[in-house]
Amino acid sequence: MNTVKDLPIQQNRLLNAGFLLVCLCLLDAVFTDYGIRSGHIQEANVLVALLYEQSIPMFYIVKLGLPLLLLYIITISKSGIVLRISLTTALFLYIAVMCIHIFWLVVVAI
């Protein structure tokens, strides 16, 4: 059972996880941009690929805007189960994406 003393700790954990998500999204955007510019990869997401072709700055804004929006939602809301599941899912997905980026960076380096 959560006590009043536990709630700030949970909120801090969510904020830390949200900040980690923003960092992972930034790394994903930079690695994706590098990979596309150097011709090593193609963007797998059709909508993001179209966005990248139209405007690279807008690509970065969207890639960072969504996790920043989630981080903002964390700061203004209570730590509900939907928010925690959303954040956890996004973190797992971006960790998987970072593993893929690291894999192709190693392959390109060899």
Rank of each mutant, 00 (worst) to 15 (best):
Met1Ser: 09
Asn2Val: 14
Asn2Leu: 15
Thr3His: 10
Thr3Asn: 13
Lys5Ser: 14
Asp6Met: 10
Leu7Lys: 06
Leu7Arg: 01
Leu7Asp: 07
Pro8Leu: 06
Pro8His: 01
Pro8Thr: 06
Pro8Ala: 11
Gln10Lys: 05
Arg13Asn: 13
Leu14Pro: 03
Asn16Glu: 08
Asn16Val: 10
Asn16Ile: 13
Asn16Cys: 06
Ala17Asn: 08
Phe19Glu: 03
Leu20Ile: 11
Cys23Pro: 01
Cys23Val: 14
Cys23Gly: 06
Leu24Glu: 02
Leu24Ala: 05
Cys25Phe: 03
Leu26Ser: 00
Leu26Tyr: 02
Leu26Thr: 01
Leu26Trp: 02
Leu27Gly: 11
Leu27Cys: 09
Leu27Tyr: 06
Val30Thr: 06
Phe31Met: 05
Thr32Asn: 03
Thr32Arg: 00
Ser38Met: 14
Ser38Asn: 15
Gly39Pro: 06
Gly39Asn: 06
His40Glu: 08
His40Asp: 06
His40Phe: 09
Ile41Trp: 08
Ile41Phe: 04
Ile41Thr: 12
Gln42Met: 12
Glu43Phe: 00
Ala44Val: 10
Asn45Arg: 01
Asn45Ala: 13
Val46Lys: 07
Leu47Glu: 15
Leu47Gln: 10
Val48Ala: 15
Val48Cys: 11
Val48Tyr: 11
Ala49Trp: 04
Leu51Met: 14
Leu51Thr: 08
Tyr52Trp: 09
Gln54Pro: 00
Gln54Thr: 13
Ile56Lys: 09
Pro57Val: 13
Pro57Leu: 07
Pro57Gln: 02
Pro57His: 04
Phe59Glu: 02
Phe59Tyr: 15
Phe59Thr: 03
Phe59Trp: 13
Tyr60Pro: 08
Ile61Tyr: 08
Ile61Pro: 04
Val62Pro: 06
Val62Trp: 08
Val62Met: 14
Lys63Asp: 03
Leu64Ser: 02
Leu69Ile: 12
Leu70Ile: 15
Leu71His: 03
Leu71Asn: 01
Leu71Lys: 03
Tyr72Phe: 13
Ile73Ser: 00
Ile76Met: 09
Ile76Arg: 12
Ile76Ala: 08
Ile76Pro: 02
Ile76Gly: 05
Ser77Phe: 10
Ser77Pro: 00
Ser77His: 11
Lys78His: 10
Lys78Glu: 14
Ser79His: 05
Ser79Phe: 04
Ser79Glu: 14
Ile81Phe: 05
Leu83Gln: 11
Arg84Asn: 07
Arg84Gln: 14
Ile85Met: 10
Ile85Phe: 09
Ser86Gly: 05
Ser86Val: 08
Ser86Asp: 01
Leu87Ala: 02
Thr88Leu: 14
Thr88Asp: 02
Thr89Asn: 07
Ala90Phe: 10
Leu91Cys: 09
Leu91Val: 10
Leu93Gln: 06
Leu93Lys: 05
Leu93Met: 14
Tyr94Asn: 15
Tyr94Ser: 06
Tyr94Ala: 13
Ala96Thr: 07
Ile100Asn: 03
His101Cys: 03
Ile102Lys: 01
Ile102Asn: 00
Trp104Pro: 04
Leu105Gln: 08
Leu105Cys: 13
Leu105His: 09
Leu105Gly: 15
Val108Tyr: 08
Val108Glu: 15
Ala109His: 04
Ala109Val: 02
Ala109Gly: 01
Ala109Trp: 07
Ile110Ala: 11
